[in-house]
């Protein structure tokens, strides 16, 4: 019974979704951070533009990246706690019933 559930399409799909979510969010974080480094190296004039009093885009982006990094972990945790965990609990239940 346990084998059957673990080989089921439902379980395989869940495993795949989890991998996609993890890798996608990782990729976003990598792009954001190395994008920032790219801007610092090659787009200095852009980052030096003032947008809020004397505060320029570069400083704002620095703060935004820190916030976004945290928000991304928040998005992951909401997905994992609300959707993923519920499905895992369901699968665990099935396994225990079968045994």
């Amino acid at each position: 019974m346990k084998e059957k559930i673990l080989n089921s399409e439902e379980f395989k799909h869940l495993v795949k979704t989890k991998k996609i979510v993890s890798f996608l969010l990782t990729l976003i974080e990598i792009i954001i951070y190395f994008g920032f480094i790219f801007l610092i190296a090659y787009k200095k004039a852009f980052l030096s533009q003032k947008i809020w009093g004397d505060i320029n885009i570069g400083i704002t982006l620095g703060i935004v990246i820190i916030l976004v990094s945290w928000i991304l972990t928040g998005i992951y945790i909401i997905w994992a706690n609300k959707i993923y965990d519920a499905k895992i609990a369901l699968i665990k239940e099935k396994i225990e019933e079968g045994e």
């Binding site: 979510v21 990782t26 974080e29 954001i32 920032f36 620095g62 820190i66 945290w70 991304l72």
Partner: peptide, 18 residues
């Protein structure tokens, strides 16, 4: 100096996701 401050946080999402 701010570039460093940003660099110290970006490893944490990686820990979370992977």
């Amino acid at each position: 100096g701010l570039i460093y401050a940003v660099g110290w946080i970006v490893g944490w999402p990686i820990i979370m996701f992977l």
